[in-house]
Design a protein around this nucleic acid. Sequence first.
DNA 1: GCAAGGATCTAA
DNA 2: TAGATCCTTGCC
Length: 208
Amino acid sequence: MEHEKFSFDKAPEHRLREPFFMRPTELVALELLGCVLVRRLYGIMLAGRIVETEAYLHSDDAASHAANGRTPRNAAMFATGGCLYVYRSYGIHYCVNVVTEAQGRGCAVLIRALEPLAGIESMQRQRRTDEVKRLCNGPGNVAKALGFSIEDNMASVCHPELFILPALLGEGERIAVSARVGITKSAGLPLRFYLADNPFVSKGKPSA
DNA sequence: GCAAGGATCTAA
DNA sequence: TAGATCCTTGCC
């Protein structure tokens, strides 16, 4: 993608609305590829193109945090599609998911990697690295680069200062599917989606 | 290869 | 209330 063509002037007007997220989780995970996650934080616009996602389903998916029903931690997964589910991972990192389907279902799409488009200097400070390829190449890194924390749990991603723009897919960009990363249960399901050969995809190894 | 790191959930 | 688990990362 040509980063310099990205403009914020009227971006919020074009944001995806709730109905986009209230569809089957696998479809949302697939269609989020190429979409641009935008956040205005402390007056700075941060944006990255989604290049890697994982679907966590409402049933028959033991790897999902919602697999054993609703708890205080995973309550956001049971909110309505278009909300954020943010959780702490390994006691150290945060991971950002977009809730899918109807309220009460308990499913979400994990945002695993972004191609930074804007606010790159800010991301570099947050991540304490200058290497653009590594700013958002994993779920913990995405959260850190964009400043997400547990405070953002349950927030709407259809908000003027936190939203997602429709996909920008380049000619010849192909979508690949694999098993998900870092799980042991339901490890064989093909629920990880990413842009093939994109250098901003995480280094995580599929579990199956 | 593996420690860091802390909340969360389950079983007792 | 102890203990295992965990949708990870970066350094050893």
